[in-house]
Each structure stands twice: as C-alpha cells, then as structure tokens.
C-alpha cells in the first residue's frame, strides 16, 4: 500500500442476487482526499456496491480494495460507515452510542465519550448528550449515527443516502460535515439521488443504473455531456427570425431557445444584429447535474427521482 493508492478501488465488481446481477461489472477509483458521489436511481445498485466495497457482502466476481487493502476487514478501523437503513440501540444514551460505534472501530471508550460530547456540542445537540436514542427525533438520531461514523476520525467515510430523512437545516449541517471531513484529509464516498447536494460537494462522481456504471468524472464533466442552452429575446420581433436561428430553436414566450452552437454564438449574434432583429435579451444556461443525470440514465429510469 502506498499513499498514491486510491482510497477505494474496484475492478469489474459483480454481485448477483439469485439470477439478477445487481452490480454488473462496476469499476471505481476514488482518489484519496476526494468527495466522491455515487449517483443513481432507486434500485440502481448503489447500496449493494457500497456494501460490497466495505466487505459487508462478498462480490461474486471482480476485486476491490479499501485504503490499499484487498480485504476490507483489514482497513475497517480506518473506515466510517453510515448505512442507508439507520440503526441504533434505542436504550443507549446518545453519547454512549457514538462511543460504542467508535469502540467497534478501535477507539478507546473514554476518548470516544469525550469526543462524542464535543461533537454533539458542535453539532448543536449538546442538550441531548445523555438522552436515550429512543427519546430523540428521527433527524437527531440520524445525526448521532453520523457522528458515530466519524468519531474515530476515519481515513475513509462511506455514507449511504446520508441526506434522506433530514430537514434542510440538518442537510446543510451534513454538507458542512462532509466538507470538514475532506478538509481534515479524509476521503468521503457517498451515495445519493439528490443532485443538488452532489453538485455542491462532489469532486468526482459516478452515475450508475441497472448495476452498471454509466458515467465517471467531475461534476463539470457530467454537465458537459449536455450542450449549454441559449435563450434569445429579439429586440425587435419580426417574422423570419427562425430562419436565422439554429434548426433546434423553439419558441419560448417572446423569445427562443436552442442549443449553444458548437462553433460558438458570436457569429449568430452578428447575423441577428445585421438583419435587424437586435438583442433584447440573451442568456447561456449551462445544464444542471439533474439534466445530465436524466440524459445519462435515461428519462424512464430517472423519473421519480427528486432533483
């Protein structure tokens, strides 16, 4: 293992449940220190991919390494994990639950309890340090579990759908925590189907659907899979403007919409001015990650996914 090894490496990972290939030959390289998103619609194989990477379940084919170890167990003390299905012992106090999760990863109990109290204070949960889990709200319990997954200061943090079930305030807190973990030097790998979060925090991402990886790259590269769109509003509306505009131009209120031409827009603007249509308004809109996601996985697969 060297420091140049990726934090997570997977090569042709396959996992079958019965005859169904839930994970179907996925390759993944998560660079150290990156925030890496695994995006996909429901049933795409995100959770199974993460569980296979972590060694909770064994792949049927392919190989994977975590922090340079081909056996994920060997690196388990340096990994933090928030599963999709949240689970805590209801009768445990919040501080003890966090310390327990740290202890499972090799952190001594006293340190775990001290850190738990500090982290809860910092997360605005100071009042609930000695509350039993069953008395906390769902969102608070989820934050407690999240703190439990980072209390041992892992080198790799794996979060499965971390934003689901959180209110906007707590979602913001979670984003801050992910960024803070990256700043601390940790690698963060998380799955989500909420594009806004991925767009804001991810350095790189993979989009998977039907168990296959459909895209891998940066957020900009994902957005780059779709051309930018132009919205043009003539200064002097007259008949015949459509003949000047690109073939895909469609009316949009008083104006027109079309894809940004490959050769750029400067030539088109000159023509429009010369012919007297003028420029009443012009905007070039870069496609969002949501648009790229829909295009990559297909509209049918993406339907029902919130943006």
């Amino acid at each position: 293992m060297t420091v140049n090894d990726p934090a997570v490496f997977a090569e042709h990972l396959v996992k079958r449940f019965g005859e169904r290939r839930v994970v179907d030959g996925i390759d993944l390289i998560v660079p150290r220190g990156a925030i890496y998103g695994v995006l996909g619609p429901n049933g795409a194989g995100k959770t199974t991919t993460l569980r296979t990477l972590l060694g909770i379940i064994e792949p049927d084919e392919g190989r994977r390494s975590i922090l340079g170890h081909f056996s994920p167990r060997e690196a388990s003390d340096r990994v933090g994990y928030l599963p999709e299905e949240r689970g805590l012992y209801p009768s445990m106090k919040a501080r003890d639950a966090i310390a327990f999760m740290g202890a499972l990863r090799g952190l001594d109990r006293r340190t775990g309890r001290t850190r738990a109290a500090e982290m809860m204070e910092a997360a605005g949960l100071g009042h609930a340090i000695d509350e039993k889990i069953k008395k906390l709200s769902k969102g608070m319990a989820q934050l407690v579990q999240l703190l439990g997954s980072v209390v041992h200061r892992p080198d790799l943090l794996v979060l499965d759908e971390p934003f689901s079930g959180l209110d906007p305030v707590n979602q913001e807190k979670l984003e801050a925590l992910i960024l803070a973990e990256r700043d601390r030097g940790a690698t963060v790998l998380f799955s989500t189907h909420i594009m806004a979060h991925a767009e804001r925090v991810c350095d790189r991402l993979a989009i998977i659907a039907g168990g296959k990886r459909r895209f891998e790259g940066t957020v900009d590269e994902a957005r780059g899979t779709l051309p930018s769109r132009v919205r043009y509003l003539p200064a002097r509306p007259q008949a015949g403007v459509a003949e000047v505009l690109p073939h895909d131009a469609t009316p949009d209120g008083d104006g027109w919409r079309f894809q940004l031409p490959r050769e750029g827009i400067e030539g088109l603007l000159v023509t429009l001015i010369e012919r007297g249509y003028g420029i009443g308004g012009l905007s070039i809109e870069r496609p969002g990650l949501h648009d790229a996601f829909v295009r990559i996985v297909g509209r049918d697969a993406a339907e029902g996914e919130p943006a």
Partner: peptide, 17 residues
C-alpha cells in the same frame, strides 16, 4: 433479533466480522 429489528446489524457487520 435485537440487532435485526433495530437495524444495528448493518453497522456491526460493516465494522467487525
């Protein structure tokens, strides 16, 4: 059964054999 019902088993299974 406690771990299964509370879904803690996933946390345990990820952390320890």
């Amino acid at each position: 059964a406690e771990e299964r019902n509370n879904k803690v088993i996933e946390v345990l299974a990820a952390a320890v054999p």
